[in-house]
Amino acid sequence: MPSASPNTFSDLYSAYAAGCLDPAFAMMLETQSAVRSDVRRSVVVSEMVSGSFLDAAPEAAMSEGALERALAMVDALEMPAAAQRDAGRAAGAALRELLELPEPVRGAALDAAGRDGWQMLGLGLKRLKLDVSEAMEVELYRIAPGARIPRHSHSGAELTMVLSGGFTDERGNYGPGDISMNGPSDTHQPVADDDGVCYALAIRDGGLRFTGLMGAIQKLLGAR
């Protein structure tokens, strides 16, 4: 299956370990780590390497009460996650699918579903915009078995990771944890596998450019 091959000492893992990765990519990496053990091992090694550099660096004085404030922030992050799970279980079949997604996408998706709801894009295709990053577009797609995203190219770079199920496009098949990478010169049409619903997380720094009838409508509306 085509995917972004994990590299133990890649810039991506190093930036994540250093805490300077864009929140959208950090969420994708953390979610991929939850799905794939090879990525999880690479992240752990990168964190150990970064930690060794931190250990060798001169100590910085902490402000008074810094530890207490940090622990309080951790508690504040953990509490809503449990509340979201409880709320999701009570909401019915639609949200039960979201509860099966790996964290941290699950929490972001539950927030977005409760705040803005899903947007219908076509037969068997829904999109949920996640409020994760100011610099990147972050979207969760639900593609019913056999349904397809309209053929499109990209105005920038796009990374799409399968969370559950799978899809196929002109370049190959993608399953849970696989990442499809596309740029402005790539045109494709992802089609969900027939054996189950596909959930996919897409991160891009530009909009989609549809072809055919959808492209004509997009131009008419003046959309990106």
Score class of each variant (00 low, 15 high):
P58F: 04
I217F: 13
L67I: 11
V138T: 11
S185D: 15
C20G: 08
P58T: 05
E170H: 09
A56K: 07
G222A: 13
H152Y: 04
A108M: 13
A202H: 02
L128V: 03
K129N: 10
V162S: 00
G196V: 01
P104F: 04
G19A: 07
D86V: 11
D186H: 11
A90N: 12
A223F: 15
P190L: 01
G51R: 00
D75Y: 06
P190T: 01
A135H: 11
R127M: 11
M181T: 15
V74C: 10
E158G: 00
S3V: 06
S133D: 07
T31G: 05
G107Q: 14
M79R: 10
S14I: 09
A83P: 01
M161Y: 02
M214I: 02
A57V: 01
S50L: 08
G207C: 08
A18G: 01
M161Q: 00
S33I: 03
V44L: 15
L71P: 00
K129S: 11
M48P: 00
P184M: 09
H154E: 05
P80N: 10
G65H: 11
G165V: 01
A93V: 12
H152V: 03
S133K: 05
Q119T: 13
L220N: 09
P104R: 07
M181F: 14
V74G: 05
M120A: 12
G175T: 05
R96D: 14
L110D: 05
P23Q: 10
A82F: 07
E68L: 10
E97V: 00
A200S: 13
S133Q: 03
M1D: 09
K126P: 01
A147T: 04
F25P: 01
V162P: 00
M181W: 10
Y13V: 02
S185W: 10
G183C: 08
E64C: 12
A4Q: 11
M136T: 03
P104Y: 03
R85A: 11
C198I: 04
G165N: 00
P58E: 14
A192V: 01
A216D: 13
R127V: 03
S42P: 02
L77F: 09
L213H: 07
L140V: 01
L123S: 11
Q119L: 09
S185P: 04
E78G: 10
E30T: 09
M79N: 09
D186L: 05
M48H: 15
G165M: 00
